[in-house]
Amino acid sequence: MDRGISPHWRDDVLAGLGDIWPVMLAVAPIAGLFGALAVGKGLSIAEASAMSVLVFAGGAQFAALELWSYPVPVAALVFSTLLINARHVLMGASLMPKLGRFTRLQRLAGMFMLTDEAWALAERRALGRSLTPAYWFALAGTLGLTWIVSSVLGAWLGSFLGDPRRIGADFAFTALFIGLIAGFWNGRVAAATIAASGLVAAATYAAFGTPWHVAAGAFAGIAAAYLAAPGPR
């Protein structure tokens, strides 16, 4: 199989752009909200922008803001990021057999842009034809640029916004996360996960405060999923 640039790279770029634009429309306002809330939490525009460039993972970035305080709880923030993004390992493993036309460098650079959305679209593309670097970088790179530009704009606009509580923006995280959690709904196992994590996290928060509630709730939710799932004990 030939590697690197395919003779049909222009078609692949256009196909990538065609698949990603509806996702861009959905992601741009969410990235803007991230920037605005980051500034509301006390991050500078440069810091908020750097996080969108270097981390580029929405769920983990919003979770970090929710947990953010000064002095910065560095270890808790990095640990919660690792937990939330652990799912990338499975996505990368499922994509690997489809990356035959990527050089090693293209694989390592391309995976920097791995997101839930790009992964889902690439998997769908790989059902019908081979996955090319042109398709992947057009798809994932455009989504990355959208995330970064909208974050910067949101942070800049947010610096004029004032107290986020006045317009209920402090609750935007909670509502956003409820929307994200709904995307993982799969019936009984999800119900057990949500109930166990929510109750244990709230109780731990009441007893010990932040940030212990994250690890305690997460592990309770994971254990509940293990117990609720069908299978041999």
Binding site: L83, A86, T174, F177, S197, L199, A202, G217, A218
Partner: peptide, 24 residues
């Protein structure tokens, strides 16, 4: 089986835990 279900449950479990103080 169960190991897959536990791994798949990591993102919602963390997200719920993060908002539990605010929501509950």
């Amino acid at each position: 089986g169960r190991a897959k279900a536990a791994f798949d449950a990591i993102p919602p479990a963390v997200l719920v835990a993060v908002i539990a103080p605010s929501a509950l």
